[in-house]
Design a protein around this nucleic acid. Structure first.
Lengths: 215, 215
DNA sequence: TGTACATCAGTGAACGCGCGTTCACTGATGTAC
DNA sequence: TGTACATCAGTGAACGCGCGTTCACTGATGTAC
């Protein structure tokens, strides 16, 4: 069963190739896009080893750089993880848009895209629910990415119910978001396994469940 | 607004009082119920300081015992946290039953109880979604507590739809569980704050959202 | 085009820290006779 | 009831570890003149 198979996130890789002069960019003392490379390295570690194994030092190691180097790009570990979360929201948005475009029922496609993203990037999805929004000063990058991601859902709801009141729309949005978010989380934790034994088609499960939403 | 105010979990406290002879139990070399006391101490630390601050040593310290003592009751840290999660599921079950009994719509009461529990025990609720079920050997205690907790939901669904097929029931259960679980998680993470600004009645929000479930 | 210089983005060593866990130990308890 | 002894449940010291972060440094880059 493929339900819980993590798939590496397609985060944009470093821009080493854009370094101007060097025939062999690896010899460059300066990296070119270490910030991006660090985020990518962190995403990879997350996908391969999970949250517990994610250390700043490990990320630097993976990016092939000294352990102090990240501090030229991120104030601290929290800031780096916040950037990783932001990249996650960008990817989540893309997944929702892609599945929406491919679905007959566009709105349901958004939900399926949400769940599929979680299944394909379990550790990242969990990281995205971390304390990066609720801390003292959420990074603008994260806020924007989270907002854009939420926007996909809200736009779809608003389009489907042009006559609904503000309040109605908000409740509908909260309910839709909740059901796909809950489904994604419970599937990830293996808590629904007893309920869908033998079924490995996440898309079908997501459709069956979201069909019960009277939105 | 009281939405995000953590409330200490009513985990049963140590059974020191059942120690037989001692007029002053504190002088006893043996604790009486250190296992229970450790679970309680961990729950308290969780409620007060959150997951990051939860260390085995800290738990032992809080229970007033040496750092090596826990190893006479738990194989390792994972085992202790697993026991804490199990206690959490017992409390979650109680919360669902209580709210169900108090509600007009019993089934909706279950959902409200679920959400309320999460709001009152945020860190514990998050711990309960940790890797304690999906590890190699989930503890029997945890499996039983999780099963009993899920049972409240399943029983209510089955009672409400005596004629539904097995498959229908499972999908209905997954959908109900998903929507309350998602709502709880999103509220906890503050992600719904923009949607319910100024509203601090979690019960009302939970009811409005679950009303949209056509189960 | 050449040079001086400020700034940027790396390095490598070191800091202190709290952690999970192990160990040999000892005090308390329960039991067989 | 008393005693010997096995077992249980504590103690306190120590282990090695990887971590986040800081520091003084240096190589590379960009810019003003």
């Amino acid at each position: 069963m493929t339900l819980y198979l993590p798939v590496s996130l397609g985060v944009k890789r470093s821009m080493k190739s854009t370094v101007k002069k060097g025939d062999n960019p690896k010899k460059n003392y300066h990296h070119g896009d270490l910030r991006g490379a660090l985020v990518a390295a962190a995403s990879d570690i997350l996908a391969e080893d999970g949250m517990e194994k994610l250390s700043l030092r490990g990320v630097a190691r993976r990016a092939g750089v000294s352990q102090a180097a990240p501090y030229h790009h991120f104030e601290n570990k929290h800031a780096l993880l916040s950037a990783v979360a932001a990249a996650g929201f960008v990817a989540l948005r893309a997944s929702m848009k892609k599945h929406a475009a491919e679905s007959e029922d566009q709105f349901q496609g958004v939900g399926v895209g949400y769940v599929m993203f979680a299944m394909e990037n379990p550790a990242l999805f969990r990281l995205m629910q971390g304390p990066y929004f609720s801390c003292d000063e959420p990074s603008p990058e994260l806020l924007a990415a989270g907002e854009a991601s939420r926007g996909v859902l809200l736009d779809n709801i608003a389009a489907a119910y042009p006559d609904a009141s503000e309040r109605e729309l908000r409740v509908k949005a909260a309910a839709s978001w909740s059901i796909v978010h809950g489904l994604a989380t419970l599937l990830l934790d293996g808590r629904l396994q007893p309920m869908f034994e033998g079924e490995d088609d996440v898309q079908a499960i997501a459709k069956a469940v979201t069909d019960l939403l009277a939105v």
